[in-house]
């Protein structure tokens, strides 16, 4: 169980994490999503006590991480891939960490086997590929058989086999009753593994939801209309409060603020010809892009922040 409560971290003038609150529950995989620079890694560092929050609280298993007396058993984390001395062997690296809590050497060999590094256990890490480094990071995270697993962009640098393997691993860890937090900047990856999503942008919480809910929330976004009288239809639509943007062709409109049936009825009432009318299918990827684009370019109406970022977004964005 991970609880972030009003977490805020500023580096000088830069606010990396801004009043972030969320919970990661045992038995499920929580995807931590956001574009690069959204504050995912910083949040994980705050959760692990590596960086001190400017304000707010980070609790793991009900306590601050540094108050745990056997922390590796509580939380296993992969932060930076290959953050290992290149001159040390994978086994020695794991063994040195295992020693801090009296974890037996047998467990080191077990996790090496689990991630498929047994054959190179005694090779120097400097000779590892990015994917092997990533596997070593995962072995490190699993070393203490922790109740909470936290992985920062674990699929980076893995080949397709490795990506599949990680998915299975994460599902398995959650099925065993662990709380799993995995960050990614790719929705496509999270859609396949996560039960729950915590989406951040510019350090702020954008969504704390399930995959299904997120799609539902963004569905019905826009309707594509093709009509030889597109100009007139656009005026009619404006009259009922919908927004029609011209599409790629002169007879194309992209309509927001009105569902497809209403648009059809409106056109019929005014005797306008329609050649095409369909709701834009929202993929999870679109939902995510919409969500994070909003956070990058302008602020969503509901949750305007206490203090806007200095380097915030271009002015005059619509809405």
């Amino acid at each position: 169980m991970i609880e972030a409560r009003g977490l805020t971290k500023r580096y000088g003038a830069k606010t990396a994490v801004d009043d972030l609150s969320f919970t990661v529950r045992p038995g499920s995989v929580t995807g931590f999503l956001g574009p690069n620079g959204a504050g995912k890694s910083t949040t994980m560092r705050l959760l692990l006590g590596l960086d001190r929050p400017t304000s707010g609280q980070a609790l793991v298993g009900g306590k601050r991480y540094r108050d745990h007396r056997a922390p590796l058993r509580e939380v296993g984390a992969l932060l930076e891939a290959r953050a290992v001395h290149p001159g040390r062997s994978a086994r020695a690296h794991l063994l040195s960490l295992a020693r801090t809590e009296g974890v037996p050497a047998r467990r080191v060999d077990e996790v090496l086997d689990l991630v498929g590094l047994t054959a190179v256990a005694r090779k120097r890490v400097g000779s590892f590929s990015l994917g092997m480094g990533q596997r070593l990071g995962i072995a490190t995270a699993l070393l203490g058989d922790p109740a909470v697993v936290m992985l920062d962009e674990p699929v980076n640098g893995l080949d397709p086999d490795g990506v599949l393997w990680i998915r299975g691993l994460l599902r398995g860890l959650a099925a065993e009753g662990r709380a799993v937090l995995v960050s990614s900047h790719l929705m496509s990856e999270m859609a396949l593994t996560a039960d729950h999503l915590v989406v951040v942008g510019r350090g702020r919480l954008l969504a704390d939801t399930t995959v299904e809910e997120l799609v539902a929330r963004t569905r019905g976004g826009s309707v594509v209309v093709r009509s030889p009288q597109a100009q007139r239809l656009a005026v009619m639509l404006a009259g009922v409060g919908a927004v029609a943007r011209p599409g790629d062709a002169p007879d194309l409109l992209e309509v927001r603020g009105a569902e497809a049936p209403r648009i059809g009825e409106l056109a019929a009432r005014h005797g306008l010809v329609l050649h095409e009318l369909h709701a834009q299918q929202t993929s999870l990827e679109d939902a995510y892009m919409t969500l994070t684009r909003d956070s990058r370019e302008y602020l969503t109406d509901g949750d305007s922040p206490a203090q806007p970022d200095l380097d915030a977004a271009p002015a005059g964005a619509p809405r």
Binding site: G102, P104, R107, T118, L142, D145, G168, R178
Partner: peptide
């Protein structure tokens, strides 16, 4: 390698000894 099921036992019960730092 590449078993999709991690061969770990339920959370917190594997043979990891018992020890505080």
């Amino acid at each position: 390698m590449s078993t999709t099921r991690p061969s770990t036992s339920p959370a917190g019960t594997a043979g990891t000894g018992s020890g505080r730092v």
